[in-house]
Design a protein around this nucleic acid. Structure first.
Lengths: 224, 224, 224, 224
DNA sequence: TATGAATGAGACTTCATTCAT
DNA sequence: TATGAATGAAGTCTCATTCAT
């Protein structure tokens, strides 16, 4: 894919994180994967290194050959989080923004964004859940996100501004804020459907997303 | 307040839960409050009963006179959660719906809802945070919420339907879904402003809320 | 009863212990009885003062108004043990020896001894069990028994010697030893029937006792 | 010893229990031995795992690598009890019965039985004492004994019956009962000599046993 | 490098005992 | 005198971490 190359050039500073992943030995990876499974089920503090070891199919001692402490194991999850979730989030965002907005409807662009974003989150839910929860208690975990986020905001802002110039987006709305609300909706949707799904009986994802988008674009109020 | 009386008649079945709270002895309450503080800072599993004791100004043994186990102490937080957050959530909702919608603008009603809801959450943030996070690992904790929620949904739906009949709300939107999106926005807003506040630099609450409401009511798109 | 008076004169040194019992208030007694029940079921160390309190129908604090420590409560059981078991053991022994041996068969005297002895033990089994077991770990509990025992041995010896003079008892047997074996048989019988009763299927007490006595008197071997 | 082989063939089903003992690691064994020492001195409930650890020369945590709970440690004593006491009891019994009774006097056979039985008990007194006392409070502990006991009874009965046919044993006595009384005497003797030894001043074991046997065989009564 | 037995600090919890009421 | 809430020392048990093999 030629596009891939192009994208990488745009994010040279993130290159290293991704590259690091290749260094991971098979055992290293197995331990990380086991950690995600266990942590996401019981939470970091309530998880036992013994269980991670069993889940990973290694001895308990081996874990400490790769990670100096248990907390280090939690920090280690940042690598796959960045590689699998955060980076694609950014990359794909750029791709959509660059390619999509030229000739496609605003609604279609946003829908695609929502669909594959929520799919991305859902596919890595254990990882996301673990990091989201633990970030509440170990703020340093948010660091990498805080470094990436401004870039996302900047790109998003640029996108909104472009749309405003094309007359597709209300001029009186601050672009940053507009994106923030959009993201809140996506997060809120995924969160609620996951935790309260059985109460709310969420139906087919696509329909739900369509509605959210409709509301976002048109509002609920009848114009008089 | 005469209104108070009126409200109570509407929710006679929830009355008892609130009443129970008065039975709590001073020490019982002190322990619960200390637990919220400690749990919200480190998470339940990483918290030490010794620290809760110190924070509450009692001996460690005393905690176990009131709560059989540490987990029981977590469950004990449900009482204040219900009394302070959940129940007012419902009560105030009814009040707003019954009184406000008669003669006030839809926008004003929703704004008031958002403002005092997000204030309610923010004022009890440690409690809400603790329960929200731990609910991910101890699903029983969600039970009381799951019992109240349908009532909230029902009332909200009725409210939306009424607005639709008055011609204030788009007819083509399912009322339940509409409320769900609204709630997602509120939650998403509080969540993001709390966790990523320093990145996003959220400004005065009122302005932000006004924007969210504006988007919810009117959408972002320029109508053509 | 004139006999009562006579007996008391023979055991003036035990008088005091028995007298003490009358001082016991109702609550004091209730606590002791509760203690026997609880201790005999779980053993002293595994018993909780809280359970003794509940069982006795008093508050936990009250126990410590009567007994300075938990161990003191165990020592307190010596009073009823002496009054109800040990003293009757001695008294009745004397009575039987003095009255019975004159004109009754040796076999009848011994049978009566065994029957009411084993009944005495069985009726106070919880008490006896508790003291027997705990004596293994708190040797001072055996003191009162060690003070009474020599007297019993002395009397028993005199009895045997008398029987030997009448030609009812083998002359070549040391009287003390003979009694010791007899007592071993009684204890052994009660012990085994209580602990292994369901395996051994002990039948009617009387029959079993008759056999033991028969063996004791006649042996198992066919004389050639 | 050729006899050894012969014996094994007779009890193939008990072989496994004994074999298991060899699996015990050195530390496992040290802990068990320390447990016997400590438990027999203070009783199970009053014993502290910390003391067992110190006595065994391991850290407290190590105990719980081998035994999930303190109670489990008590249960663990059943293995050596079975291996060292119970099984030899059965094996030796058979040996004596099969080899001895052919050409030896009944008295000699029984004397040998008593001598090495009481020696066996005495050599393992702490173990036997602990299990005997705790069995009163944890009846499960008696299970293995209850499984072996019927076999012992059966063998003993056969032995008595054989002696009866040879004319050495009174025909009018139920064999099972006869053995039961014999066992009571052995237990009673060991028990009393251990707990009340200083009062009774038990002399040389052999003499005492000879007397007990004499009484058992010939009774105390002069035949007229 | 991988193992897993051993460690020991420290967690949760129990419970005899005290003392203000 | 009786109470029972409060105590806190001490107990059982857990688990991250080390280290000899």
């Amino acid at each position: 894919m030629a596009e891939q190359e192009e994208k990488k050039d745009l994010l040279p500073d993130l290159e290293l994180d991704l590259g690091e992943e290749k260094i991971l030995t098979e055992k290293h990876l197995k331990i990380l994967e086991a950690a995600v499974r266990v942590f996401s089920e019981k939470g970091f503090s309530a998880s036992r290194t013994s269980e991670v070891a069993k889940e990973a199919g290694v001895s308990e001692g081996t874990i400490f050959n790769y990670f100096k402490t248990k907390k280090d194991l939690l920090r280690g999850l940042l690598v796959p989080l960045t590689a699998r979730v955060l980076r694609p989030f950014v990359l794909a965002g750029i791709e959509k923004v660059l390619n999509g907005s030229k000739d496609r409807e605003l609604a279609d662009v946003l829908r695609d964004l929502m669909v594959d974003r929520s799919r991305l989150i859902r596919n890595n839910l254990p990882l996301v859940k673990t990091m989201a929860v633990e970030a509440a208690y170990h703020p340093e975990l948010l660091e990498p996100i805080k470094q990436v986020l401004p870039k996302v905001v900047e790109l998003a802002t640029a996108f909104v501004r472009e749309e405003q110039q094309r007359g597709n987006f209300r001029e009186d709305i601050d672009p940053t804020r507009a994106m923030r609300v959009f993201m809140s909706m996506v997060f809120g949707y995924v969160l609620m459907s996951e935790t309260l799904g059985d109460v709310f009986s969420f139906e087919e994802e696509e329909k739900e997303i369509d509605l959210i988008l409709d509301l976002y674009l048109n509002g609920v109020q009848v114009k008089k």
